[in-house]
């Protein structure tokens, strides 16, 4: 049976992991390759490396990081952040990334998704969506008709690391992105992110039901029950988390043990008991 995936996410700034991982007895827990290898050994099903470096000049550092991660890790990993052109995509894939994720660049240039998917295959193109609940009324439609917010919209897409509202409906954009060729959707709830009070289950379920490709839920994990909720009530195919793993609140094995005991299919790895 296809199992649900548990995916730790590493934020990388100028080649170093942001948000310390001090509890781990690692040689250099700020080194993305060391940390990625650690999570591989721990039984993570996949990894996401998000380049949050502000300057484009520092992009070469990330290529080198990806190369070093690929040397040590024998599970799939996705690289995102700042990829703007098919050439950026090609460099990351050649450096050893299995998938790349497009966020702002996909919003600004949807053809980038289409061209990249055609050239490299749908399976390696992830569209990342930062979504925020629509609070009061609907702003004038600024987006293309098919993805614009309407009266029924519940979540708006934000670009530029969550700083800019786009006028796009998150569910419609997810559907459109997969029509363009995205093979997976990485969905982050901006409302839930950072609060550790659980994923936005309504958002996750709405997107999971709207698209025919896998959906990774992101933002809000604070407990193992939150992971279960995202995968069951939220109908996500994978759950991404950062803090609960990085700060040692839970190990990957504990997460998988909990999920397995609650009937969620997971890949049993070292230390998982059912």
């Amino acid at each position: 049976m296809l199992t649900r995936r548990i995916i730790p996410c590493l934020d990388v700034d100028r080649g170093r992991v942001v948000k310390g991982v001090s509890f781990l007895n690692l040689r250099d827990a700020g080194d993305p390759a060391v940390l990625a290898a650690f999570y591989d050994r721990e039984g993570a099903d996949e990894l996401v490396l998000l380049d949050i470096t502000a300057s484009a000049e520092a992009r070469d550092i990330m290529v080198e990081v990806v190369r070093r991660v690929a040397d040590q890790v024998f599970i799939p990993f996705t690289v995102g952040g700042g990829l703007r052109a098919p050439e950026d995509v090609r460099r990351m894939l050649e450096a050893g990334a299995d998938k790349i994720s497009l966020n702002t660049s996909a919003i600004e240039d949807p053809q980038l998704v289409e061209r990249s998917a055609r050239r490299f295959g749908n399976q390696c193109i992830v569209v990342a969506i930062d979504a925020k609940a629509v609070t009061s009324g609907v702003r004038p439609a600024s987006a293309e008709g098919t993805v614009a917010l309407d009266q029924a919209s519940r979540w708006e897409v934000y670009s530029h690391g969550g700083r800019r509202p786009t006028g796009m409906d998150a569910v419609k954009w997810a559907r459109r992105a997969t029509e363009l060729g995205a093979g997976e959707v990485l969905l982050t709830s901006m409302n839930a992110d950072g609060h550790q009070e659980g994923y936005d289950l309504a958002l996750t379920r709405a997107v999971a039901q709207a698209v025919s490709v896998p959906v990774i839920a992101s933002g809000g994990a604070g407990t193992l029950e939150h992971l279960r909720q995202a995968l069951v009530e939220g109908e996500a195919d994978a759950a991404l988390a950062a803090s609960i793993f990085h700060y040692g609140t839970y190990s990957i094995a504990q997460a998988k043990t909990y999920l397995a005991r609650h009937g969620v299919p997971v890949r049993p790895t070292a230390g998982v008991s059912v």
């Binding site: 199992t3 099903d45 896998p214 994978a238």
Partner: peptide, 10 residues
């Protein structure tokens, strides 16, 4: 089904 079939299977 969700396609691609993506992830760990037996």
């Amino acid at each position: 089904l969700k396609v691609p079939h993506m992830g760990w299977n037996q």
